[in-house]
Design a protein around this nucleic acid. Sequence first.
RNA 1: GGUGAGGUGGAUGAGUGGCUGAAAUCAACGGUUUGCUAAACCGUCGUACGGGCUUAAACCUGUACCGAGGGUUCGAAUCCCUCCCUCACCGCCA
Length: 426
Amino acid sequence: MLTLNHFSELRDKTILGLKKRNWDDDKLGWVDKVAALDIERKEIQTELDNLKAFSNQASREIGNFMKSGQKGEAESLKSQVARNKIRISDLESRSDANKSEMQELLYKIPNIPHASVPAGKGSEDNEVFQDWTQPMPSLYDGALPHWELADKYNLFDLKLGVKITGAGFPLYRGKGAKLQRALIQFFLDQATQAGYEEIIPPHLVNADTATATGQLPDKDGQMYFCDLDKLYLIPTAEVPITNILRDEILDEKEFPVKFCGYTPCFRREAGSYGADVKGLNRVHQFDKVEIVRAEHPDKSYQALNEMIEHVKSLLDKLELPYRILRLCGGDMGFTSALTFDFEIYSAAQKRWLEVSSVSNFETYQSNRLKLRFRNNEGKTQLAHTLNGSALALARIVAGILENHQTPDGILIPKALQSYTGFSIIS
RNA sequence: GGUGAGGUGGAUGAGUGGCUGAAAUCAACGGUUUGCUAAACCGUCGUACGGGCUUAAACCUGUACCGAGGGUUCGAAUCCCUCCCUCACCGCCA
C-alpha cells in the first residue's frame, strides 16, 4: 500500500511510475481521486474532532452540574449533546464511506517502480541484467527432459500425485526424495551462514496475515483456503515470515533483520496451461527456502545486492547456468519496487526456467504491515522490506536432473554430495 | 468438544460509570554523584490521525485507541451482547 504522500508531494512521480506499469488514463485518475479523498478525510476529521470535543467537554460539565444539583443546567446541556450526536453520526457515516473508498483504491494501486525499472508490457521486455557468458552445457544425444528422467530413475511420480491428490502435486521417491531434502538442507545452511535466522513458520495463515503482505485482496483465488477455519495455505514463506514483523516498531540498531525459512508453497495457479505445466515446471505444491529482510531505507538497495550475490553463489555451487533479469514495469509483481528474476537454463527443454525472484518492496509492504523503526531523531518511520527465493526447489531439481545428466546417470554437484550421500543417480 | 477463570502501556499490575490515556513497581533512556562498577537521587518514558504555529523541527492543542466489533448512557477500561484469543481442569488424540 502506497503512503499518502505519493498522492500529494510525489504525485508526478507516482503517475510516471504507474505509466511504467502501463496504466491508462482511466486508472491514472485514481491517483487524484485518492488525493481528493485524503483532503476530504482531513476536513471530516477536523469537523468530527471538534464536535466530539464539544460533547466531551459538555459531558464533563453535566457531571459537575449533577454533583452540585443543578438539574436544569444539566438537562439543557444534555439536549445540546443529543443534537450534537446526530451531526456526529452523520459525519461518521461520511467518514466510513471515505475510508472504505480510500482503502479500496489503495489496495488497487501497485508499488511505484524504481527508477531503474525498464518500461515494458510483459516478460519479453525484461532486461537481461546479467547474461550467462560461459558455454552452455552440451548434452549427449538422447538427453531427456526431467519428467522422462524421473521415470527412468524412479525419482518422482506425477501419476501417483494425481491419484493421491490431483494434478500438480508431485510425489518424490527414493533418490528423488533424498535430493529434494538435500537441497532444502543445503539452502538453509547457506542462508544461515550468510546471517539469516532460520524460522519454521506456520503453513496456514489467517486473513490479517495474508492481507498484510499483500496477498489479499490482490491474490485471493490463487491461494488454497480452508473455509471451515478461514485459513489460507501459504503460497510462499514470505507471508508468515514477514508477518513476524507486523505492528512492530524496531530500534534502528536492530537492522538488518534477516530471516530465512523452508516451507512448502501452495498455489492454485488458476488459469495456467500448456507447456509450462509439464513435469515440475509449474506445480501446485513445491518446496522453497525463502530469505526475508527488513532494512533501514538507506540500506535496502545494498541489501538487495547482497541477496542477489547470495542467490548467485547458490547457483554457482549447484553448477547451473543462469541469467539474471531485471523485470520490466509490466512484468513486476504488484507490491515490488524492483525485482530481479533468476532463470536457469534447461538444456534438455531448451528453455529458461525461473527459479528465484528477489525484490525490494521499499515501504509498500511495511505500510500495510505497520512495520516501523525509531530513527535517530526518535521518530517512527516505515522500514523497507525485501525478500527472495533462495531457492525454489522443483525447478532446481528439474535443472539438476537435465543439465547434469550423462549416459551413465545424473551427476550430483559436489557441493551437494555431502547432503545427498551419493554422487550419481543411476 | 465440555466447564471455569481471564485479556489494561515494553513487563508485572491497580483500576466496577465522570477527578483515568490510565496508579504503582520493574525494565529502558537521559542526567547528577563516583577513581571504576554498583547503589542512590532527579528527569523522560505509548501509538495513530487532525488543527495551530513554523521553511522544518521543537512546541501548543484536539480526537481515537485498555483483545475485536456492536449496544446502553449526557459520559464506558469499568455495564450489556456477539466474536476472537489465553490459561486451568476434564474429554479426545498425532
